[in-house]
Simulated assay, not measured.
Amino acid sequence: MRLAFYGSSLVSAYWNGAATYYRGLLRALAERGYQITFYEPDVYDRQKHRDIDPPSWCRVVVYDGTVEALKRVAQEAAKAEIVVKASGVGFEDELLLAEVMAAADSAALKIFWDVDAPATLAELKAAPDHSLRRALSSLDLVLTYGGGDPVVDAYRVLGARECVPIYNAVDPETHHPVPPDPRFAADLAFLGNRLPDREERVETFFLEPAQKLWQRRFLLGGSGWHDKSLSPNVAYIGHVPTADHNAFNTTPNAVLNISRASMAENGFSPATRVFEAAGAGACLITDYWEGIELFLKPGEEVLVARDGRDVAELMQKLTAAGAREIGERALRRVLAEHTYAHRAEEVDRVLRRAHRMEAAE
């Protein structure tokens, strides 16, 4: 089936946390026979910071960040049997949704794919006349980055016909164990861009433990932290290209996942970092969120912290051998149950069912 996907970016992970998700899932769908075209706007300097070339398994169309260019690429939706508009594209999202769905063939599956469902739902609840809220009943399907039953129930209340969470996973060809790299040597490392709904949690789960454990080495990666006050034992290395993510995860004794506030509050929303770290065989410490046990077993395959004090205590108890065992168990678990091949099988099943239902109406 021909799939037109309008998203933030496939070729650049720069200020684009959904890149890993898009790449892993769409590649796995392409391997199942889907013919995919990915449309992305040239905004936020993403094209200047490409970290992959356009892949052989997907046609990538980059369009100027103008309304005229947006309307032109939206017309190409008419050629597809499945049309997807993702959240957080970053340029005229509401207009893009309207133009793409208006151009889509009447027989095509029309899908909104939400890569930050808790935040989107909060926006919709605060704006009763939001264009996405008005459009939900005309769409065939809402797919989400995660969120579990709370997100499914909320979307149905707002008028969605069907909502299905498609969780993050690991692409073993992209994220896997590699030899340690001295650039990333640390007792605890955290990788994440500086965002308003994450910064306070980074202070609690990462910077405060660093102040208490002044004799330990901490490593901070990601964009936007250059003017943040850091204790002397925290090394800031800026943006970490995706080509270095495996070494970043493998080298430290442990790596930390800190969810954005909305995802932590909702639960059932494992970040890409969770699976990137597990896929590299890293020992992962994650902030607590409901549903973690559906993906990794706390205490055996992942360490869970409810606050900065927990992080500090876990680090004081964690040995190199213990960290290695946790990472090895996590790697076995994700390879057995949580690869993008597993997710693509689920998406394929959902799309084919929705297509049959559409044809029957």
Score class of each variant (00 low, 15 high):
Arg2Asp: 11
Ala4Asp: 13
Tyr6Thr: 02
Gly7Asn: 12
Ser12Asn: 09
Asn16His: 09
Gly17Met: 08
Ala18Gly: 12
Ala18Asp: 07
Ala19Cys: 15
Arg23Cys: 02
Arg23Gly: 02
Arg27Thr: 07
Ala30Ile: 06
Tyr34Ser: 01
Gln35Phe: 07
Ile36Ala: 02
Tyr44Asn: 10
Tyr44Ser: 08
Asp45Gly: 12
Gln47Asp: 07
His49Ser: 09
Asp51Leu: 10
Trp57Thr: 09
Arg59Ala: 12
Val60Met: 12
Val60Phe: 00
Val61Phe: 09
Tyr63Lys: 07
Glu68Lys: 13
Leu70Glu: 05
Lys71Ala: 08
Arg72Gln: 15
Arg72Phe: 02
Ala74Cys: 14
Val84Asp: 08
Gly88Leu: 11
Val89Gln: 11
Val89Asp: 07
Phe91Asn: 06
Leu96Val: 10
Leu96Tyr: 11
Ala98Lys: 09
Ala98Trp: 03
Ala102Val: 05
Asp105Ala: 15
Asp105Pro: 01
Ile111Gln: 05
Phe112Val: 05
Asp114Phe: 07
Asp114Glu: 12
Val115Ala: 08
Asp116Leu: 05
Pro118Ser: 08
Ala122Val: 13
Lys125Val: 01
Pro128Thr: 11
Asp129Ala: 12
Asp129Gln: 14
Asp129Thr: 10
His130Phe: 05
Arg133Thr: 01
Ser138Gly: 14
Leu143Ser: 03
Tyr145Asp: 06
Gly147Leu: 05
Gly148Lys: 13
Gly148Pro: 03
Val151Gln: 14
Ala154Thr: 15
Leu158Asn: 04
Ala160Tyr: 02
Cys163Val: 09
Asn168Val: 12
Pro172Glu: 11
Glu173Gly: 15
Glu173Val: 12
His175Leu: 04
Val178Met: 11
Val178Cys: 14
Pro180Leu: 10
Arg183Leu: 10
Ala185Asp: 13
Asp187Leu: 06
Ala189Asn: 07
Leu195Trp: 04
Pro196Leu: 08
Val202Ser: 03
Thr204His: 10
Phe205Lys: 00
Phe206Cys: 03
Leu207Glu: 04
Glu208His: 08
Ala210Phe: 06
Ala210Lys: 03
Lys212Cys: 04
Leu213Lys: 05
Gln215Glu: 15
Leu220Ile: 14
Gly224Phe: 03
His226Cys: 10
Asp227Pro: 04
Lys228Leu: 01
Ile237Val: 15
Pro241Ser: 12
Pro241Thr: 15
His245Asp: 14
Asn249Pro: 02
Thr250Ala: 15
Asn253Gly: 14
Val255Gln: 03
Ile258Phe: 01
Ser259Met: 10
Ser259Ile: 07
Ser259Val: 02
Arg260Gln: 11
Ser262Met: 08
Asn266Ala: 15
Gly267Val: 13
Ser269Gln: 03
Thr272Pro: 01
Arg273His: 12
Arg273Tyr: 00
Glu276Asn: 13
Ala282Gly: 01
Thr286Pro: 03
Tyr288Cys: 03
Trp289Asn: 10
Trp289Ile: 03
Ile292Val: 15
Glu293Leu: 02
Leu296Ser: 07
Lys297Pro: 01
Lys297His: 04
Glu300Val: 05
Glu300Thr: 14
Glu301Cys: 05
Asp310Ala: 13
Leu314Ser: 05
Gln316Asp: 11
Gly322Asn: 09
Ala323Gln: 06
Arg324Thr: 12
Arg329Gln: 13
Ala330Ser: 13
Val334Cys: 13
Leu335His: 08
Leu335Thr: 00
His338Pro: 04
Tyr340Asn: 07
Tyr340Arg: 06
Tyr340Ile: 07
Glu345Arg: 13
Glu346Cys: 00
Arg349Trp: 01
Arg352Gln: 12
Arg352Gly: 02
Ala354Arg: 08
Ala360Glu: 15
